[in-house]
């Protein structure tokens, strides 16, 4: 079969069916005696206070932003890395320039203090 994604699609479907099967079997075999106390939110023996959706600090967002940029960078670098074997030295230098430009962004983020957790 020419398209490898046929195999991977089948693999994904079967890899989902097996955990579902295990969970369904456990649902059938296990006892079912729900009560409000049992189904309340677990919190170290104390009653839960307030909404569980607490507001998070902005730092998570900043790290996710930096991650997004470097992830896209890495995606660009993979075709470069593959092509490099067959190409002369200047191709390697092109990639080096690409990385150096982005490292400047990392330096900016660092100097701005955005990489500190607190």
């Amino acid at each position: 079969m020419p398209n490898p994604w046929v195999f991977i699609g089948l693999f994904i479907i079967i890899a989902a069916i097996i955990p579902i099967g295990a969970i369904v079997v456990a649902l059938i075999l296990g006892p079912k005696k729900p009560n409000p106390i049992k189904q309340s939110t677990y919190e170290c023996g104390l009653e839960t206070v307030g909404d569980s959706l607490v507001q998070f600090k902005a730092q998570y967002y900043v790290f996710a932003l930096a991650f997004l940029i470097f992830d896209v960078e890495a995606v660009f670098l993979f075709p470069w890395a593959i092509a490099m074997n067959k190409m002369p030295l200047y191709v390697a230098l092109e990639g080096v320039i690409f990385i150096v430009i982005l490292v400047a962004g990392l330096v900016y983020t660092w100097r701005k203090g955005a990489l500190e957790w607190v």
């Binding site: 900043v62 930096a66 940029i69 430009i101 982005l102 962004g105 900016y108 983020t109 203090g113 955005a114």
Partner: peptide
């Protein structure tokens, strides 16, 4: 990408 990173950090942080 560099411009996006600097801009995003400048706005967000």
């Amino acid at each position: 990408l560099l411009a996006a990173l600097i801009g995003a950090i400048y706005v967000a942080y």
